[in-house]
Simulated assay, not measured.
Amino acid sequence: MDLLYSVTIGLCFVLSFVAFVYPILPGALFLVLGFVLYGWIYSFHVFTPTLLIIEGISLISLFLVDYASNLYGIKKFGGSKAAAWGSTLGLLIGPFVIPGIGLIIGPFAGAVIGQLITGKQSVGQAIKVGIGSVLGFLGGTVVKALLHVFMIGIFLFYIF
């Protein structure tokens, strides 16, 4: 039974990384689910106040990075709120419409379309905003991946 429990908890952690490819999946929620399953199955005694504070701050950081990175890339390149909304929609839809490359094309196309809808800038400027969206998304993804590894590493340190 221990093997089944460990595999289930590990699967939660793996699914948290799959959320990088399919952003509609709640990656942070899978991380927390893995932690809670461990506590429920084995014991919550390893969840010291220090661990909870570290994991809580890291979890909040995940959400902040997710929100701010894409927005930063768009704003840095002169994008509008419509571009930010378009990029977000493209990020959610793109991977399902064009598996694999849709993760990049979706936010790019969404930001460009959103920017063009405002009618304030040229196609060239809208493309720059799209590039900013992709750069922000990729930068944020790297930071989120590092945070995921950190959170799982700290958790494993505490349970072993």
Rank of each mutant, 00 (worst) to 15 (best):
L156Y: 02
F137H: 06
I152M: 07
G34K: 00
G39Q: 01
V18N: 04
F35H: 02
G114A: 03
P26L: 03
G27P: 13
V97Y: 14
F108W: 07
F35Q: 03
Q125M: 12
L91I: 09
S122D: 06
W85C: 06
G73W: 10
G10D: 01
G34Q: 00
L25K: 02
F160K: 15
P49G: 09
G73F: 11
V149F: 13
L116F: 07
P23M: 05
F157A: 14
I117A: 04
I54E: 14
F108R: 04
T50Y: 15
S61Y: 03
L31R: 01
G102D: 13
G153R: 11
G102T: 11
Y42L: 05
I131A: 10
I53D: 14
G139W: 05
G110R: 03
P49N: 09
G124V: 06
G139R: 01
A68G: 02
L89T: 06
Y22C: 04
S43F: 01
T48W: 04
L103N: 12
L147R: 06
V97F: 13
V149I: 13
N70I: 05
S69A: 07
V142G: 08
F47N: 01
Y67E: 03
G153C: 13
A109M: 14
Y67D: 03
I117E: 04
K120F: 14
I154C: 14
V97C: 12
V112Q: 04
A126W: 12
Y5M: 03
I104A: 13
P49E: 09
Y158N: 04
A145F: 08
L91R: 11
L92T: 13
Y67H: 03
T50I: 15
S122Y: 12
I105G: 07
C12R: 00
I41S: 02
G139C: 02
A126S: 13
I104P: 07
S43Y: 00
H45C: 03
P99V: 11
A68I: 05
P107S: 08
V149W: 09
I104N: 09
L89G: 13
Q115I: 06
F44M: 05
I113T: 07
K76W: 04
F150D: 08
G114F: 09
S87N: 09
S87D: 09
P23I: 06
L92R: 12
G94Q: 15
G27N: 08
L103C: 11
L11Q: 01
K144W: 01
I154N: 13
N70T: 10
A126L: 09
V18W: 01
W85E: 06
G106R: 12
G56C: 03
L138H: 11
D66H: 02
S61W: 02
F157H: 15
W85V: 00
L89Q: 08
A82M: 15
G73T: 00
I131M: 14
G130I: 07
L103W: 11
Q125C: 07
S122L: 11
G56R: 10
G136S: 04
V32W: 00
G139P: 02
L3D: 12
I104G: 12
